[in-house]
């Protein structure tokens, strides 16, 4: 198992307050990791850490064995719950944005044959997420589900080493959410993506992932609750395989180990 991303004894502190403590884990390439946990358990901090929006106070985060800079970069793509797409660009322009930034550092725009190539690539990407009929539509005219599809297409055009999803389906209604599950699963399989997803929905986490991380505080000090940080209290590997082409999302079998057993197992492991 090759670790794409490694965290070694990572701590995140804001002044007096400890958010994350002693987080050590490896994330393998092509895995689909879900992060669950109560509000304030540092799920989003964990994501921002991988994204480079935040730096660990102690410890290190390695991507492909190299320490991450404290800056977002093109090797990690992201889809947020909201505001992931640019409101002033059409769907096609949103998807082309990554190519244009890469190939036109000064003007930020492409012309001629390079522009045509970028358009063709962006159109293929829109088709992959089912937005081929909305290429000239602005995000404000799209439904929430379409906007998230667009955000995914926009991120994938850069072929990121890791795709980070921050509660990507939290604002969608249940039917649309199922469609999005199918889409993400298909893209993950077809393109061999590595995905880290933060979610509130535990069922979603178990349905989609190859591995579920639960973040919470191990220790509580009632007099100084902010002095203990969260960490990955449960680390549940599931048997969902990236190359398991037969299984569709609709009739995906549940995890081979019942969650309760898995939790107690990994709990013992962790102690």
């Amino acid at each position: 198992m090759s670790a794409l991303l490694s965290l070694h004894d990572v701590w995140v502190e804001y002044g007096d307050k400890i958010v994350l403590e002693r987080v050590s884990l490896d994330i393998a390439a092509r895995s689909f990791v879900s992060v669950v946990g109560p509000s304030g358990a540092g799920k989003s901090t964990f994501l921002r850490l991988i994204l480079g929006q935040e730096a660990p106070t102690r410890g290190e985060v390695l991507l492909d064995g190299k320490p991450l800079r404290r800056e977002c970069d093109a090797d990690r793509g992201v889809v947020f719950q909201r505001y992931s797409v640019f409101p002033h660009l059409t769907a096609l322009q949103n998807v082309m944005f990554g190519r244009e930034c890469e190939q036109a550092p000064v003007t930020g725009r492409l012309f001629g044959s390079r522009r045509r190539a970028a358009i063709a690539e962006a159109e293929a990407m829109l088709e992959a997420v089912g937005l081929e009929h909305s290429r000239h539509v602005y995000p404000a005219q799209m439904s929430g589900g379409m906007q998230q599809r667009l955000a995914i297409a926009q991120a994938l055009i850069k072929h990121p080493r890791i795709l980070l999803l921050d509660e990507p389906f939290g604002a969608l209604d249940p039917g649309i959410r199922l469609d999005m599950h199918a889409l993400v699963t298909r893209l993950w399989r077809e393109r061999g993506l590595t995905i880290v997803m933060v979610t509130h929905d535990i069922r979603e986490a178990f349905k989609l992932s190859t591995r579920v991380l639960a973040f919470d505080k191990r220790r509580h000090d009632p007099h100084a609750p902010h002095r203990f940080g969260s960490t990955a209290t449960y680390d549940v590997p599931l048997d969902r395989k990236a190359d398991d082409a037969a299984g569709t999302v609709a009739d995906q079998p549940g995890p081979a180990i019942a969650p309760a057993t898995a939790l107690s197992l990994s709990n013992e492991e962790a102690e």
Binding site: L51, Q53, E71, C72, D73, A74, R76, G77, V78, F80, R82, Y83, S84, V85, F86, P87, H88, L89, F97, G98, E100, C101, E102, P105, V106, G108, A151, Q154, A155, I157, K158, P160
Partner: peptide, 26 residues
């Protein structure tokens, strides 16, 4: 939204591109 600037950076935008492609048009 800070998300827009983060997203643009994950799409490879430099500071200048952030200014002219994300902030200026809006």
């Amino acid at each position: 939204p800070v998300e827009q600037f983060v997203k643009a950076q994950t799409l490879g935008a430099n500071s200048w591109q952030l200014a002219i492609r994300v902030a200026l048009p809006q």
